[in-house]
């Protein structure tokens, strides 16, 4: 069992702007942890610090050592010239058939073979989600993962994700409490 991730006294500024000011949080292992907060509260900065893409100015993060990470970024970050299937298979290191099957489960059938650049915003978001969820990971960070999805698709996708993340450590960043509840969030951290 992996240990909890402890963020202690984290501060981060970008130029003059202080985004995080002595932020503390414990992200419980094996559960869905939700970071709730309005825009500009520093949610994405926390996600980037957890991903190792940003370094905090002050404070410590423990429990991340040796973890395999996976993430849905705020942007989709897909290779636009590649098909949806290739985007998933090359990153997640799975076969094209497995990738196609996973995409089908979130409602992407024919579009799975289209290049990502030709997909709609909602379709791209689902490709990014599938890529993150089918990858091998210890910690999954989801930064506004369901944005751009209509209600029916959102429910379908949330249920699909929930079924695949049992016993995994997940950090969900959102401003929609209903998403957090439906995903089975057990711990909520509110940012002001």
């Amino acid at each position: 069992m992996m240990p909890d991730i402890v963020m202690k006294n984290i501060s981060k500024s970008f130029g003059e702007k202080r985004v995080l000011d002595h932020f503390d949080a414990v992200l419980h292992s094996g559960t869905v942890n939700c970071l709730l907060g309005a825009s500009g509260a520093g949610k994405t900065t926390i996600a980037r610090i957890l991903c190792g893409l940003e370094t905090q100015d002050e404070g410590t993060v423990t429990g991340l050592e040796g973890l395999k990470l996976s993430a849905v970024f705020q942007e989709d970050r897909l290779c636009e010239s590649l098909s949806a299937v290739t985007n998933v298979s090359f990153v997640a290191n799975i076969s094209r058939e497995q990738a196609a099957e996973a995409l089908l489960e979130v409602g992407l059938r024919t579009s799975a073979l289209q290049s990502a650049g030709t997909l709609s915003g909602g379709q791209k978001r689902r490709v990014a989600l599938v890529r993150a969820v089918v990858s091998d990971f210890d910690l999954l960070i989801l930064d506004e993962p369901f944005k751009g999805l209509d209600d029916d698709t959102k429910n379908l996708v949330i249920d699909w994700v929930r079924d695949r993340i049992a016993t995994k450590t997940v950090v969900l960043i959102t401003h929609d409490e209903r998403e957090a509840q439906r995903l089975g969030c057990s711990s909520v951290i509110r940012l002001s």
Binding site: C51, G52, L53, K68, L69, S70, A71, F73, E75, R77, C79, S81, L82, T86, F90, V91, A92, R131, S135
Partner: peptide, 24 residues
């Protein structure tokens, strides 16, 4: 650079990063 960050986070092997990110 966002694709390169993505590849780093997902531990994509260098040969695959060259083939699927740099080449296109």
């Amino acid at each position: 650079f966002r694709l390169l960050e993505m590849a780093k986070l997902f531990r994509v092997k260098p040969a695959r990063a060259v083939r699927y990110i740099y080449v296109p």
